[in-house]
Write a protein that binds this DNA or RNA. Structure first.
Lengths: 205, 205
DNA sequence: GATTTAGTGTAACCTATGTTACGTACCGTT
DNA sequence: AACGGTACGTAACATAGGTTACACTAAATC
């Protein structure tokens, strides 16, 4: 069972004044929601009105187009802020569908309350700015990946982040490519010496 | 000649207390740089240490991979904040190369100074948060485009934003596709009735 | 008016990835 | 040991987009 994180432990609040924060968190209206593995937590394009903190479990963020083609943008593990970059956008809709990969718990706080919190404690503001910025960086790297890279380059990138591909089917789904395509490319990369196939799966040499 | 915007006119400072702001801007160390049309303003992967405000002219943001393939992410016109989302990231490097499309002027302020400014005037903070969030939204839309859409869908998206394609060569470059590919796809879309070809160029029906 | 130049359409071919289908290996059940 | 399910590799074919080459047009230059 995955661990349940306390709000105070979130990196978002690191360095913040614990008393002020505690006081704030106790009085501010908030709610905690639970979802079961497999549940859809938010649908793509649904409005984003609260700060959502993933306290337990993990979920996938997936993007879909109108014809049903899908790509998994990332897997998020607690503790994590969900879609911080869309909370204060002019058009605040989720760009992805979030689906629980395990049983999860989410702590929510209204965006206005959270704005007040950031104004109260500058450390929270700085942490939030860094988080939102890091997510932009992540998005721009993903963009680079999809706009400019071939499947084999993307595989290498994946293996730099993940050690091993031991489940071709799942990874193909995550990358948004067809399983036979991934399988074929993996095999040809092994032939070229770009990858090694071990008993654990495909790894970088 | 494109207009020179005063800093105070930037949407980033809208609603802010003019006196506080003026005082701040006069005393804070800042600098103004000029570039000529065609100049590289920042290279992809170079560090991002200052808030940069584009006060005059326009520039292109282009992403390149190691093999030289390129995509133009967007064209930015004054008044605009340059790469706000990378200023406070953990690894603050520009994800794109910025090149002047016209003669331009950029006003720069150190990130620490600007952080202080946001803490001083909450309106600036809110404006910055909105800006940075909007840019994330933009990035996630671009990501959707490259990860999930075909060329013809992307053409329709382009025409929703731009009225007309009157220069196939340039648009092919901007989209990061080969000119003959764009030309072929445009022709076939006209055959299918998805587009019309007028004396001005290709337009939506 | 002749010539050059830049942008365009298009054809032929190439490559990467998607689609479908099938045989195989492994693993758990009985 | 027989069976069924699941993941895997792979082959044959389909499709999208890239590459090269060439001919056509219109504007620019002489």
């Amino acid at each position: 069972m995955s661990r349940l994180y306390d709000i105070m432990e979130f990196p978002l609040f690191s360095g913040a004044d614990k008393d002020i924060l505690n006081n704030f968190l106790l009085n501010a209206p908030h709610k905690i929601s639970s979802f079961r593995k497999g549940d859809i937590v938010v649908m793509q394009d649904s409005p984003c009105r609260s700060l959502m903190l993933l306290c337990q479990g993990s979920l996938s963020a997936r993007m879909t187009n109108s014809e049903g083609k899908e790509v998994t943008i990332e897997i998020l593990h607690a503790p994590e802020i969900l879609a911080p970059a869309f909370l204060y956008a002019s058009e605040n809709k989720f760009p992805v569908t979030l689906q629980a990969e395990e049983d999860i718990k989410i702590w929510s706080l209204s965006k206005d309350e959270f704005l007040r919190m950031m104004e109260t404690d500058i450390r929270v503001l700085r942490n939030f700015l860094r988080n939102i910025s890091d997510r932009s960086l992540f998005l721009s790297r993903k963009l680079n990946e999809f706009a400019l890279q071939s499947l084999s380059t993307r595989i290498i990138g994946y293996l730099k982040r993940n050690e091993v591909i031991n489940n071709v089917q799942d990874v193909a789904f995550i990358m948004g490519v067809a399983r036979p395509s991934l399988s074929r490319t993996l095999s040809s990369m092994v032939d070229q010496g770009l990858l090694q196939k071990t008993s654990d799966g495909y790894v970088l040499p």
